[in-house]
Each structure stands twice: as structure tokens, then as C-alpha cells.
């Protein structure tokens, strides 16, 4: 079936099967930042934006993106590097496998929440599992990023 969407700002049309997930579609189109950590919609590794909102690409059929915009970390390189630098300065990327989905959701949180508290940050990101860091360094990185971003405003 035909799928036309805007992927990282570029409009394109592809042939996909009815049961192709957005995840498989994106990986097959070279968006290799998008990872899969489970089969049960639990880990958050596959997070991408659909119309600017974070979704689990493993659960969304590719065809649901018909006519919509999809953003992966490949399309947010500059911002990923900006926030990522804070993670890196905490050593909180560790194995990095959950980083793309996590960074996608952080960047979404930054757009959606104004001045979030620690509790709000934790709740917003609760769907992003990480087994390496214990989450503390990620929180430190987010706080510093928000602080300096806020300062820049």
C-alpha cells in the first residue's frame, strides 16, 4: 500500500504492507537511531514523534502516519547534540541504547511542560526505561539543560 508522509522534513512516498509498523518502516529507511527493546510497548526505546508528539513507533502501524509528519533523532541532530552534551557531561548516556528514545522524549517534554518539577520530569519520562544509569544522572542532565536553556531565554 502507498504511504506518503513527511520524514524529518522531507516528503516521501513508499510502498508498505498493511502490518508494517512505523518502527520497521523507519529502520528500513535508514533511521537507525530508532531502537527496539521489547515486544510489549513497555520500554520507550522506539520513541519518535508523530505530528510532533512522542509515540511508540513499534505500536503505530506505518500507515497511520499517512499524510503526517514523523521526526526521528536523525531529524533533530542539532538539538540532540545540545541536550546530549549535558548527558555526556554526567556520564549518563552509559551504553546509549536507550538514548535516542529518551532524548526524543526529553525534547518533547521541553516543548510540552513549562518549568517542570523533578516529579513532573520523572513522570513524563517514566516510559523510557534505562538499565544502566539508575536515572539519576539523566535527571541531573535535564535540570542543567533546563536551567541553562531557561537562562538563554
Amino acid at each position: 500500500m502507498k504511504l506518503t508522509l513527511t520524514l524529518n522534513g522531507v516528503r516521501r512516498t513508499d510502498e508498505v504492507a498493511a502490518d508494517t509498523t512505523l518502527f520497521s518502516y523507519l529502520r528500513d529507511r535508514g533511521c537507525l537511531s530508532v531502537k527496539c527493546g521489547c515486544e510489549t510497548s513497555n520500554c520507550g526505546l522506539c520513541t519518535v514523534w508523530l505530528e510532533g508528539k512522542p509515540v511508540l513507533s513499534c505500536s503505530v502501524p506505518a500507515l497511520r502516519a499517512q499524510g503526517k509528519s514523523v521526526t526521528t533523532l536523525e531529524g533533530l541532530q542539532e538539538e540532540a547534540a545540545q541536550f546530549g552534551a549535558y548527558l555526556a557531561d554526567e556520564g549518563a548516556e552509559q551504553c546509549g541504547y536507550c538514548s535516542p528514545g529518551f532524548v526524543m522524549n526529553v525534547l518533547s517534554m521541553v516543548r510540552e511542560l513549562d518549568n517542570p518539577t523533578d516529579e513532573e520530569i520523572k513522570e513524563y519520562l517514566a516510559g523510557n526505561l534505562c538499565r544502566c544509569t539508575g536515572y539519576q544522572g539523566q535527571l541531573r542532565a535535564i535540570r542543567r539543560y533546563l536551567q541553562e536553556k531557561g537562562g538563554a531565554k
Binding site: 520507550g44 512522542p54 522524549n105 516510559g127
Partner: peptide, 8 residues
């Protein structure tokens, strides 16, 4: 689950 799940 999480925000991403609830967005779906």
C-alpha cells in the same frame, strides 16, 4: 506505561 504509550 508512559507518555508515548498514552499518546498512542
Amino acid at each position: 506505561v508512559g507518555v508515548q504509550f498514552r499518546n498512542c
